Amino acid sequence: MKNLVKTMRKPNWNFALNAVMTLCMLAIIGIGFLIKHTLLQGQECKTIYGQNKELYLLNMDRHQWGNIHFILGLVFCGLLTLHIFLHWKVITVIYHKIIKAQLAKRILAFGFIIICSILILIPFFITPKIEPIKKGKGRQVTLVTDFNSNLPYLCNVN
């Protein structure tokens, strides 16, 4: 193992990091397509299969695949941060070559940081629109009576 670390030079580490980032991004994209087009949500599933069904792939439903999608997104963010850290010198050299004026450099960097911060933090500060479920939309629950006892219980009819 010690020899492996010694023989791995910076280009080899960069290649390995880029390969893992590529695989991670492809998995994120693939799972996104899986959730959107294969493991359909309620109304789309009902339209295709005639009734509301739970769809599974590898014993996981769309919500469990969504959790994997989210975790891979976090892993990718960590790898991207490491990638930026390892390439910081190259980034700054190219940035200084492209933009000559000091004021423009600062404005552009500040604007970029603001945009990135907004994109990351906005989900924590917005609230969804809340509306009551209209008839014929969403899950419907019907009151059913058990024949063995006269106690009513709730049952999903979907």
Rank of each mutant, 00 (worst) to 15 (best):
I29H: 03
S117N: 04
M8Y: 11
L4H: 06
I98H: 04
H63R: 06
V90C: 03
A104N: 13
F124G: 03
C24D: 11
D61L: 08
H83A: 10
I115E: 00
K6E: 12
N156M: 15
I71F: 06
I107P: 14
C116T: 11
P152R: 07
N59Q: 00
L151K: 09
N14H: 13
H83D: 09
K97Y: 03
I114Y: 11
I84L: 13
F125D: 00
S149A: 08
K100P: 04
F15T: 06
K10A: 10
H69D: 02
T142I: 15
C77P: 01
I133P: 00
C45G: 13
P123V: 07
W88R: 05
I107G: 13
Y95C: 05
C45A: 15
E44K: 11
K100F: 09
R9H: 12
K10E: 05
N148C: 01
Q43L: 11
I29F: 14
G73W: 11
N158K: 04
K36Y: 15
Q64C: 05
G138N: 08
Y56H: 14
N14P: 02
T92M: 14
L72A: 05
L143E: 15
W13F: 14
A19C: 13
C24F: 10
Q102D: 14
T92D: 08
F147A: 01
Q41A: 10
I48D: 06
Q140K: 09
I31W: 09
A104H: 14
G32T: 05
L39R: 10
H83R: 09
A27Q: 00
F76L: 08
G138P: 09
A16F: 14
F85Y: 12
K97P: 03
F147M: 00
E131N: 15
K129W: 08
Q41D: 14
A104R: 13
Y56R: 13
N18I: 09
T81Y: 03
G73A: 06
F76C: 06
